[in-house]
Design a protein around this nucleic acid. Sequence first.
DNA 1: TCTATTTTCGACAATTTTATCGGAAATAGA
DNA 2: TCTATTTCCGATAAAATTGTCGAAAATAGA
Lengths: 157, 157
Amino acid sequence: MSFVIFLANQYPDMFSKACEYGIKAMIYVATQSLKGERVKIGDIVEKVGSPEAFTAKILGDLAKNGLIESLKGPYGGFYIRPDQMESTRIIQIVSVIDGDSIFLGCGLGLSECNAQKPCPMHSKFVKIRSELKNALESTTLLELANGIKSGQTILVR
Amino acid sequence: MSFVIFLANQYPDMFSKACEYGIKAMIYVATQSLKGERVKIGDIVEKVGSPEAFTAKILGDLAKNGLIESLKGPYGGFYIRPDQMESTRIIQIVSVIDGDSIFLGCGLGLSECNAQKPCPMHSKFVKIRSELKNALESTTLLELANGIKSGQTILVR
DNA sequence: TCTATTTTCGACAATTTTATCGGAAATAGA
DNA sequence: TCTATTTCCGATAAAATTGTCGAAAATAGA
Ligand code: FES
Ligand code: FES
């Protein structure tokens, strides 16, 4: 008889929570911006299922990096311009929040990923990592927002 | 003029540190086990570049799950049997330490990855995730140990 | 049996990530 | 100018991961 003892870590996901929240918030704001509407943080977190103050911070960071507009005061909120929506790629959101070690760094944590002196997993990782990078680079915010608008995809479960 | 503000998280790698250390330690122990030698934790962490007590804990967990043998006392240490070395796949190490959310979970953190009601990134992720799973499933510890033995790959930089 | 060695294990500490709070700053409208 | 609204931002707290310490348990050999 044998069974597995479980003691797995809790947050070893593809992206950090901050990054998941950031991507989903951006997508929701994009859908509303397509209708010309600014959205308040309270509305965003309701649709995305994320903590309010934390999400506000993340959107603030994305605003500093020019990926989203914000306006204070009544009738204020977050907004993504049409040109921003078309030009921003998901990889930009990920880079701001999580950095680029997931596409550039060594999968086994060597200080540098180097094909001349590779880690044992290098040849297995290189292709997957570049496909991930390519996927994030090639998909625009507009594309994902359209998926939500048409009801093909969802932001919360 | 425009520049990027950096505030990226610090540990959003493919695997957790614990998992990186675990994989590298297993590979090193495997190379020595090929020579019929048991290795002490002090030797392991020297070759892997990981913190001693932390690495010992991780190896203890892997031992509980039957992926490695340990023996206390003089001439004791860690050892991987030939049958273990051939049968254990990297995915088993990852599953014990990090769980399986990286190959099974939704990339945007929805409570479940569901093709009927997918998140906006689902179609982009499904292929990459399954390739990662496949890569980790198909590579054996023995294969990676041989890479180290022949000097083609390294464990520390 | 005694000693030296080495893993095991619980407690604890440090660091990072996640999350909350409260008030300042900005804005729109009255 | 005053008020209400909303983002911004620093301080702080909570939780998770990473890392350390010390002593118990097991083992080999004298
Ligand atoms: S050296 Fe490790 S992934 Fe390239
Ligand atoms: S539902 Fe998000 S990856 Fe499948």
